[in-house]
Nucleic acid binder design. Structure first.
Lengths: 225, 225, 225, 225
DNA sequence: GATGAATGAGCCTTCATTCAT
DNA sequence: GATGAATGAAGGCTCATTCAT
């Protein structure tokens, strides 16, 4: 998916936003509305989100939401697509920057999930809203985290290389799954626990898990030098 | 909490249900409506659940729902309480039956989460609905899984004993958290992955995780003899 | 009308009420429910009165109300009839006790309206409820105060005798109407003014009015000796 | 209070209404809905009034009522405020036009209450609806006629001047109260009597009362020349 | 493009009425 | 007689969607 919503397109330059211009580019308005949707989802939850809330949050008129997105359903779908694409760009970018070493790649994936740009309370809550409704909506289900087939392939391949390299007696798919669901579960904790621990402790937790499987490469504090 | 809703009270004997009696005890009707609520939450999701759906699912009239529960909100709250209590009884019972050995106790907790009476698609979906809305509703947040303080205390104590017993260099709280979130994450997978793997594979996954931390006691297939 | 509802029939003797007997005479239950209706009308107003309130007020079950009165409408009609009959018995009794002198008769009528048994906050409020709905319901309109034809005839006849006896240049029908609406208006004041004046001041007010028309017979404090 | 509802604001010019425009100013719509509410209250009574009736009466959709007034309760409150303000403007205007003579001022107040613009069957009925519910709703009670403190002050002051001027032995507050409740009572008669007398006879009645107190200034037909 | 009034479907809730016990 | 669970119609309210301006 390459930004089909237009929402990831470059925004209007900052100086144009000092006083919000009456006309904004299509893409910028869409982005503005999607960010407002994330905010409202986080604050009110999925069931209580209304288009009125979104319009108010964005400082725009009610009717404009339906002008840019044809329906509430479309607005929500595109918000989910936006989040999913943002998430994908985050981990693929981190992976690309990690170089060829599988341990470094795995650590990059672990760290990516706690990147402060991605792992904000608002975004976590918005994700959670979609997860809660995913069971009843195939489209959400397809796009929700655990169904990113490419991600699963990649993390399984990395684990398989580490298992082979270290000569371990482990099922790489299961190890990959444990690591993946540990990250998911820590995300849930960050959202729903009161009081929550912070992202640093979350990262330490998933690294503790990685250390248990690959002690030659990981410590709870990071990669073994 | 000791069954505050009355919904866990013993039902009318089955033979009384051959032809549904016009009048049923309060507790039995409440249970019937709560089970219908779980069904509808699983099928439609939280946002789309209506009292009409619940009444139809239970084969009862719309008004009766509000007669037994004063509002939709109360019905949902008591459904959550019911699920939480059911969950609690499940793990405390498994723990009590496990005897004094910490490895056996930990394995009992792992298995409890995949008990077929608890870990049904309906119940998983219903839980997921509440999780999705928990961020915006303090009451849900209090009752949702990751906030069962007693559970966390117990699993941390078990891990601490195992760590001490085996002389491991591990932070028991982090190990406990990894195990806990792994179970949570596998639950999420069972709900949202399509196609999902089954509960047996789920249990194997969390045991793989336990094996990584406590290899002297666990194997992916169960307790080491 | 001679007690068509049975509600004015003699009640069960007081000792029978120490512990409410499971069976009570038809008439006594009806009376109990009518009094409860008056109470609830006074407290909640007509629009908010429910049969549930009445049953609760009477300490009886919901279904019993419909057993004794066939419908809510009937209960209200009979409550109005009961109040109207009580009112009629009050003024006709006072009139009969007043003897033949027209001034004494008029004073008896004025005093009757402020009889503490009749002029209680509850009863005033209940009357007011019926007045408020009377415009849209012919039956209420027929029974509401200003339409008691016999009362109007009597007070007009008394005024006519006083006017003739004192040789005044007054239209007796108008004088009668002024006196009648003054009593009505003071009732309204007692109900709706906050803080209200008391019944004694109310009586003084209508006597002030009578004094203005018939100074030879009245003073604001009562009949002239 | 200076038109807090906006409903007394000038309407759209008549020619704009030849074909009812799809969009109307906020104030005009509010006025339209308030007038419809008065109509429905008069026809159905308070207890039977529904928002559906009001919408139908106004020729508008159901949802629009809640768009302009947030709830049924608010619609009713603002209707009462509108009536109260209309009433106040009527008597204050009449008083201002009456000049300095207290007898002329009193007569102006008496006539004001029977001004055909105010004293219509619809408005009388609507007032009556609010009176009937006032006992149970403090807000209605505050706004219902007998609690207009300023009105009471004014009419008492006028009576005090007349009593002093004529050297009468009367309590001005009581005289004022008799006059006030006589007007109220005649209003009730106009609403609830069947068949009612007309406004002219109503005015003659209150003037008869005024004549009894202040014969040097009043006759049943009007002010003494 | 943008606004916000207007619409109407659908839901929660109340409550009079019925009826099995 | 008495109870209270059960029913279903009706009403208030919300809100996604439309559309005139």
């Amino acid at each position: 998916m390459d930004d089909p919503t237009g929402a990831l397109a470059p925004q209007a330059p900052p100086e144009a936003r000092v006083k919000p211009p009456r006309k904004l580019s299509r893409a910028a308005r869409r982005l503005q509305l999607i960010e407002a949707t994330i905010e409202v989802l986080a604050r009110n939850g999925y069931a209580r989100m209304t288009l009125g809330d979104v319009a108010r949050q964005a400082g725009l008129s009610h009717g404009l939401v339906n002008f840019h997105f044809e329906s509430k359903e479309k607005l929500l779908s595109e918000t989910l697509l936006y989040l999913a694409e943002e998430y994908r760009l985050n981990w693929t970018g981190a992976l690309a920057a990690a170089g060829p070493d599988p341990a470094a790649q795995l650590d990059a994936l672990l760290r990516a999930d706690f990147n402060p740009g991605i792992c904000t309370p608002q975004r976590l809550s918005a994700w959670c809203s979609f997860w809660g409704e995913a069971q009843a909506r195939p489209f959400y289900q397809e796009r929700c985290g655990s169904n990113d087939d490419r991600y699963i392939e990649v993390i399984e391949a990395i684990c398989a290389r580490l298992v082979a390299q270290d000569g371990l007696d482990l099922d790489p798919a299961r190890v990959a799954r444990v690591l993946r669901v540990t990250m998911e579960g820590v995300w849930l904790d960050l959202m729903t626990m009161s009081p929550p621990y912070d992202a640093a402790e979350g990262l330490a937790t998933v690294r503790t898990c990685a250390t248990a499987f690959f002690p030659r490469h990981f410590t709870p504090g990071g990669l073994r030098a």
